[in-house]
Nucleic acid binder design. Structure first.
Lengths: 202, 202
DNA sequence: GAAGTTCGCTACGCTACCGTAGCGTAGCGA
DNA sequence: TCGCTACGCTACGGTAGCGTAGCGAACTTC
């Protein structure tokens, strides 16, 4: 027994502290982890690199998280971008706005390179798979909401392949970014949206 | 100089030999590398594991390839599945057949888990990015061919968003498999194809 | 059958990385 | 001011993995 914790809260590690130093440490560590995750992927990110980039000592990292995987999971959770839900008044406007938002996320750092890293990691880590599914589910919600508003305005019919809607809209954008690896422009998004509308709501 | 190559061909390593022993070694090594790539991803695959699974000695691996990356690149090149080009007589039949083929590839081992690994690796290795783009380009060709045949039969109009066609068809399938991570059924493929046809060729 | 080639095996040297221990210091809160 | 807490630093043990060296044995080819 080298230490005798006398305080009620922080005797044991891995317990969130509100000490401004601890808050700052956690922030810079997570920021660095996110950047490195994007650069080197899940397996390629090391605790030592996180320490070097964040300026925090490696020991400090282990004071806040039990192991490397926990740090990376925290980094992933921290970065999930909140899906915006534009309400432009028209279905097309909503969907285009939404598509542009998505394009921005998957083409600008750090989230850009993080998506491939997540997809790969999800294949081998159930907890990451869950995070990714949550992230995706969260992103499809505003699409449904936009369609729902359109139905209420009498702009679209109801009940049409609700489950298909997001896939048809988001799929091509991701496909172009990740698989065929060609540029994803704003005009491209509008083409997809227009095709989408032509197929489902005419 | 510890060795004095006297033969004209095989004095230096990394030179393809047609000795049946060498041929067999290369085959079992690549097979093992493919399996491990699918299981553990690019960064998680080790030369030692390849040796263990293939039954070949680690030294043998280094006799055929200069380093680990070269082995993995060879494994990737070896696995690119040839895209089938069904010709069923109708555009819908072709596209559905094609979609089912794709679904089979991305849901059955070893290619299933290889796609995510490739997507991630492509993000950080230009040569892998090139292989992936080639792979994708190869897969879009039969789709174009099917559409072209439909045009010649008078079944469809020409010149409609040729660049968009593959994205709209393949995107949702990949999206569902990789991002939203829900089951990709044959019925799903048919829904996508029908929507696709409704949007573009009606 | 002889020469040449490839193989498996064991044993390395080296580096990178994980996670921990112990120390002294500096910032925080009462 | 004073105790507590979190910090950075250095050092370390242990492991995993890359790539190489040298050997004798087995196979291929001519």
């Amino acid at each position: 027994m080298t230490k005798a914790p006398s305080n009620k809260e922080s005797g044991d590690p891995h317990r969130a502290s509100s000490d401004p130093r601890a808050v700052r440490s956690r922030r810079v560590i997570i920021d660095a982890a996110v950047a490195l995750l994007a650069e080197h992927g899940f397996a390629g990110t090391t605790v030592e690199a996180i320490a070097a980039r964040s300026g925090a000592a490696k020991t400090t990292i282990y004071r806040h998280w039990p192991d490397k995987r926990a740090v990376l999971l925290a980094a992933i959770e921290a970065i999930v971008p909140s899906a915006t839900a534009p309400d432009s008044g028209s279905l097309r406007g909503d969907l285009v706005g939404f598509g542009h938002d998505l394009v921005r996320i998957i083409t600008t750092p750090p989230t850009a390179a993080l998506v491939p890293a997540l997809i790969d990691a999800a294949e081998r880590d159930p907890e990451i798979a869950r995070l990714l599914a949550d992230f995706t589910a969260q992103r499809r919600r505003p699409v449904h909401a936009a369609v729902q508003r359109a139905v209420e305005r009498g702009e679209a019919e109801d009940g049409r392949d609700a489950d298909l809607i997001d896939d048809l809209l988001l799929g091509p954008i991701f496909y172009r970014r990740l698989l065929s690896r060609r540029p994803v422009t704003e005009g491209y998004v509008e083409s997809v949206v227009d095709t989408f509308l032509r197929a489902l709501y005419r």
